[in-house]
Amino acid sequence: MNEDDILSEFRAAQALLEGHFILSSGKRSARYLQCARVLMDPLRASRLASSLAARLPREIRGEIEVVVSPAMGGVIIGHEMGRALGLEAMFLERPEGTFELRRGFSLEQGQKVLMVEDVVTTGLSSREAIKAVEKAGGTVIAEAALVDRSGGAIELGVPFVPLLSLDFPVYDPDDLPEELAAIPAIKPGSRAS
């Protein structure tokens, strides 16, 4: 899939939104990708995951032993990446505000992990998830994501492979452009509280 094909998938799912959005990082944006909508069609989710898996460098793909994703946003794409790679997939949760493996999920010491996210903006959640995997005994060897919103600024300490890189401007809440400040802000993601 090329970039136009991928964006077509988002548009077909009505997952490319415009307005005033509060991102999970706290930053603001006039555009938002609702990955849950693009992933609600199992065939579309499978196509996107297969395309993302194909972008992983061969040397990384051959080393991965398990896929781990942070809940909530990464669960579906992580599961589909596991399917595309023929590997088990598990997820991290934040029952007390910090990521951890639960539900009987565990990693063997040194087990090589592909971290999979839906959207990465600042990388904060990714870095927290990587620490949780390390605490559980695993070793994250790469991260893959449907969308990189960082503008290429992400530094996770491991190779990062996005399916799509978008450079939507993001703003601090106290430094909004006039036209964005005039629109009521909504928090559309999984942590909308």
Results as ranks from 00 to 15, higher is better:
S126H: 02
E100L: 14
V147C: 09
T139H: 12
M90N: 07
L101Q: 09
F99A: 05
S106D: 15
I130Q: 06
E155S: 15
G123A: 11
F105I: 05
E134L: 12
I141W: 08
S125Q: 11
R149Y: 09
E143Q: 15
S125P: 07
V119Q: 01
A142T: 08
G97C: 10
L164D: 13
L107P: 11
E134D: 12
I141Y: 06
G104Q: 10
A145K: 00
G138A: 12
F91C: 04
G152D: 07
A144L: 02
E155G: 10
Q111C: 08
V120E: 01
E128T: 07
F105Q: 09
L124C: 06
D118S: 09
E128G: 04
F99G: 01
A145V: 15
T139K: 15
S125W: 00
E93I: 09
E93A: 08
L164K: 11
T122W: 07
E96P: 03
V161W: 04
G123H: 06
E108Y: 11
R127D: 13
I154M: 03
T98F: 06
L124S: 14
E117M: 11
A129I: 08
L114H: 06
P95W: 08
T98Q: 14
A142I: 15
K131I: 01
S125R: 04
S126N: 04
V147H: 07
V120Q: 02
F105E: 03
P162H: 00
L146D: 04
L101F: 03
G157H: 09
E134M: 02
F160M: 01
T121W: 05
G151D: 05
T139Y: 00
V113L: 08
F105K: 06
D148V: 15
T139A: 15
F91W: 13
G97A: 06
A153N: 13
G157T: 04
M115W: 00
R103G: 03
I130S: 12
E117K: 07
F99M: 07
V161Q: 04
G157M: 03
I154E: 04
L114T: 01
V116W: 00
I154A: 12
L114S: 02
Q109S: 14
V119G: 00
D148W: 10
F105W: 10
Q109K: 14
R149K: 13
A145E: 01
V120K: 12
Q111G: 09
R127H: 05
L114K: 04
S125M: 03
E100A: 15
L156G: 06
R103F: 07
I141T: 06
L163H: 12
G151S: 01
V119W: 08
E134W: 10
F160Q: 01
V133Y: 02
G104P: 00
F99Q: 03
A136R: 09
E143F: 01
I141P: 05
V113Q: 05
T139Q: 14
P95K: 11
L163V: 13
A153S: 15
E143K: 00
A144H: 01
E143A: 15
V140D: 05
G151W: 05
I154R: 01
P162G: 08
R103A: 01
